[in-house]
Simulated assay, not measured.
Amino acid sequence: MPFSGPLYERVASAPPVPSGLPLVIVLTGFTDAGGAVSQMIELFRDDLDPAPIVAFSSDVLLDYRARRPLITFDADHLADYRPARLELSLAHDALGQPFVLLAGYEPDFAWEAFSETVVGLAEGLQVSTVTWVHAIPMPVPHTRPIGATVSGTRADLTKAHSVWQPHTQVPSTVGHLLEYRFAQSGASVAGFVLLVPHYLADTDFPAALLAGLDSLSVATGLVFDGDAVREENREYLAKVEEQVSGNDELTAMLRTLEERYDSYMAGSTLAQPIIHTGDLPSADELAAELERFLADRRPGDDKRGDDLRGRR
Rank of each mutant, 00 (worst) to 15 (best):
M1W: 14
S13C: 05
P22E: 03
L23T: 02
V26E: 07
T28D: 12
G35P: 05
A36P: 04
A36L: 03
A51G: 01
S57R: 04
D59A: 15
L62I: 08
P69W: 10
L78F: 15
L78E: 07
A79G: 02
D80H: 11
R82Q: 13
L88K: 05
D93P: 04
G96R: 06
F109I: 03
A110D: 11
E116R: 07
T117I: 01
A122M: 10
G124P: 00
L125T: 03
T131D: 13
H134W: 08
H142T: 01
R144S: 07
T149V: 14
A155M: 11
H161Q: 00
Q165W: 00
V170H: 09
L177S: 10
Q184G: 05
L200M: 08
A201L: 07
A207G: 04
A208H: 13
A208G: 14
D214L: 00
L216F: 13
G226R: 15
G226F: 02
D227Q: 13
R230P: 00
R234P: 01
E241P: 02
E242K: 09
G246E: 08
A252Y: 03
E258K: 06
E259P: 00
S263I: 01
Y264M: 06
A271W: 02
A271H: 00
P273W: 07
P273A: 12
I275F: 12
L280R: 14
D296N: 12
P299E: 12
R304V: 06
G305E: 05
D307V: 06
R309F: 11
